[in-house]
Design a protein around this nucleic acid. Sequence first.
RNA 1: GGAGGCUUCGCCUAGUCCGGUCUAUGGCGCCGCACUGCUAAUGCGGUUUGGGUUAACCCCCAUCCCGGGUUCAAAUCCCGGAGCCUCCGCCA
Length: 433
Amino acid sequence: MIDLRLVREQPDVVRASQRARGADESLVDALLAADAARREAVRRADDLRAEQKAASQAVKKASPDERPAVLERAKKLAAEVKAAEEEQRAADAALRAAHLAVPNVVAPEVPPGGEDDAVTLRTVGTVPAYDFPVRDHLEIGEALGAIDTERGAKVSGARFYFLTGPGALLEFALAQLAITRAVAAGFTPVVAPALVRPEAMEGTGFLGAHAEEVYRIERDDLYLVGTSEVALAGMHAGEVLDLAGGPRRYAGWSSCFRREAGSYGKDTRGIIRVHWFDKVEMFSFCTPEEAATEHARLLAWEEEFLALLELPYRVVDIAAGDLGTSATRKYDIEAWFPSQGAYRELTSTSDCTTFQARRLGIRYRDADGKPQIAATLNGTLCAIARTIACLLEVHQRSDGSVHVPEALRPWLGGHELLTPGMSLAAAPGPAAA
RNA sequence: GGAGGCUUCGCCUAGUCCGGUCUAUGGCGCCGCACUGCUAAUGCGGUUUGGGUUAACCCCCAUCCCGGGUUCAAAUCCCGGAGCCUCCGCCA
């Protein structure tokens, strides 16, 4: 939810933001109208309640003679209050609906345009040249005994997979490296629930435009999260946080589930787009003043991680029309996939300013001790399945083996290469962890 | 899955049986002032969170886990739900 004061005081800013997103500008005026209507309804109900309270007191003090008349008046007022409260409830609901319909205000620096208008901020690393026909990650993974999508489909359906042998080890190696780096950077590591209640899903904005993407367990009224962001944001819902010492940072590990409705036919091969994967997600709570700086830090930590994996990538500044509902600004990191000859999204970091926190009631105390709405930010540290796919492709060799980045070796038995048919036992020598 | 207990304004707590100055008591913490030849003790005052109104102060409304209901009137009575705790059952 955006700040209603901003809508009242600078509606043009919000209208401009809607234009930039390619969203409906009239929603802003609808919101203003709903806001005014609600305030009117509140005033009426408040005034009536005050009158009724006095009348109710009078009942008690009335002499036996006066009592019937006074009681009659109190009853009449009670009925009026009930009607006024009904109207207020309707006005509240209308305002909420209008409020939820408006996405976060786009930061002024965000590039204009839609999906194809992201601006590349920088390209890092060299795209490797291969003097042999490159294989895609599935072909490599199958040869290594690392990925099995056929049996994944047998057991669970399309877009499911098994990670086996070196693939399973890679999963843990990436998770370990990500969590280790996050802890070194001061994050609190968290293992978060993957099933959440509707309020958490709603509060983080995933039941709006993305509702079709979400798995729901109807029988228990729970949702499977598409990212641990949901649980991490919900973790402090309704709390007043102490942010005097700077941002509060969590690195959450969880499985993530996505229905991938509407992506039929896209990335059907391999494990780039799947219904389930595990992910280490960074999440920050901070003051609104710190948010933009924090966003840059999250991006820096993402870049540092890709550097450790020795993956070439580029950083793109997502255009206004392609921003998520909650984001004021978003950077994606796209890594090179040789089999596709293209950069594909590997991580994403969004600055949600106060948009999520307002809905979830996450606050902090300012210098005057007054509660204020906090800002929230999120960023992928490592989406494991897709990262494995990228690693296998980029680091492939002509003989079907795969180079292991040094940073991952401590968790891969010290091996410098993954080779078809290899033993997974630790490599001999001092390199072994 | 079954039975019982609990949830009060930062923390602890009185109040709930038997509805009405509950405008919610007290302690701790915190803030201010006073006093004292030291930032200790003491005394006095303040201290929930939202919303409405306002230039601001004031004032008004709501808020005793949440949502309904009964009533002129609900922290208090009734129904539903959530969370926590204890016990039984089942279980990785």
